[in-house]
Amino acid sequence: MCKGLSYLPSSYLERAKGMRVKLSHLAEIHHKQKVQDGKLLQDLESLLSSKIGLQAFRGFLRSEFSEENLEFWLACEEYRVSPSKLQKIKASSIYNQFINPDAPLEVNLDAETREALLGVMDSPCADTFNEAQQRIYTLMAKDSFPRFLRSHHFAEAVKAY
């Protein structure tokens, strides 16, 4: 006959109860984190700070042939925190890669912003690309990001969380 759990020492039962409480607490934390992560993908700023979200958004932009916007934004983020002794070299690289009219990954900026950047390329500082970066961020937020939220790339990213 089965005696149930009554034959086990009380210390085992107490430990099992403690483990059950801890496991249920961990499961609750995991569920809350998944809910928060799903919400993180719903705004561009949070998406860009998420490794999975960033990969999914990059894949989506690549499928739309507009990955250069994200690459420019990321290059500006890296530039902003680079040592001042490297800023002139990095600024020139960013300009040649993304801003110059013949750039291989030219981003869509208005002529006024391009001219302003050209004017400060001789003496760049940490915030040289702030305005251009903000314009591209706004473009992604208003144009690409809403389409991304309706894409299979987004659905896959949510599953990955």
Rank of each mutant, 00 (worst) to 15 (best):
E14H: 14
G18K: 14
M19L: 10
R20I: 00
V21T: 13
K22C: 01
H25C: 05
A27S: 11
A27E: 14
A27T: 12
E28N: 10
H30F: 06
H30K: 13
K32R: 10
K32A: 03
Q33C: 04
V35C: 02
V35F: 03
Q36F: 08
D37L: 09
L40D: 15
L40V: 11
L44T: 11
L44N: 12
L44V: 03
S46H: 15
S46I: 10
L48W: 13
G53S: 14
G53D: 12
L54H: 15
Q55W: 12
R58C: 02
G59L: 05
G59M: 07
E64H: 03
E68A: 02
L70H: 00
L74P: 02
L74H: 05
C76P: 01
C76L: 02
E77Q: 04
R80Y: 06
V81Q: 14
S84T: 11
I94S: 09
Y95D: 03
Y95V: 00
N96P: 05
I99H: 12
I99Y: 12
P101F: 01
P104C: 05
P104T: 05
L105N: 14
E106I: 08
E106H: 13
N108H: 11
L109I: 01
L109V: 03
D110K: 04
T113F: 00
A116H: 06
A116S: 05
L117D: 00
L118N: 14
L118A: 14
V120K: 14
D122H: 14
S123W: 12
P124H: 05
C125V: 07
A126C: 07
E131I: 07
E131K: 13
Y137C: 05
Y137T: 09
T138R: 13
L139M: 11
A141N: 10
A141C: 06
S144I: 00
F145K: 06
F145T: 02
R147F: 02
R150F: 01
S151R: 05
S151Y: 03
F154I: 00
A155L: 04
E156M: 08
E156I: 04
A157H: 09
